[in-house]
């Protein structure tokens, strides 16, 4: 039986990216510091993966200021939501196929 590995999204190969996406699909917007706290990761790591997702067009960045402090929030795009769902479906399919073989 053919396993649909090719259906898995390359952009979500990294675990942290998938985690970021899963937070952004259930929340309208999420800010950088809350994401960092939730995912227990470092500034640099989180920033580079956010940039990667932004390049794919899966998320958009909103830069704003709270008083004098910069407050950057992230939002998932329709494209990103669809990619996330397709990726999860593919993962599910993988499990199902293995159970039947």
């Amino acid at each position: 039986m053919k396993i649909p590995f090719e259906k898995l999204d390359k952009a979500f190969e990294n675990r942290l990216r998938l985690q970021i996406m899963s937070v952004l699909v259930v929340n309208d917007r999420y800010d950088f510091n809350s994401l960092k706290e939730l995912l227990e990761t470092t500034d640099g790591n989180l920033a580079s993966h956010l940039k990667g997702l932004e390049k794919e067009g899966y998320i958009v960045v909103h830069k704003a200021f709270l008083g004098r402090k910069p407050n950057t929030t992230y939002e998932s795009t329709e494209k990103g939501k669809k990619a996330f769902k397709d990726h999860l479906d593919a993962l599910e399919q993988l499990i199902k196929q293995q159970k039947t073989t």
């Binding site: 985690q19 899963s22 259930v26």
Partner: peptide, 13 residues
Amino acid sequence: ELASIRNLMERSS
């Protein structure tokens, strides 16, 4: 992976 995703979605919202 799926379990951690579900957990994150729950915890973040």
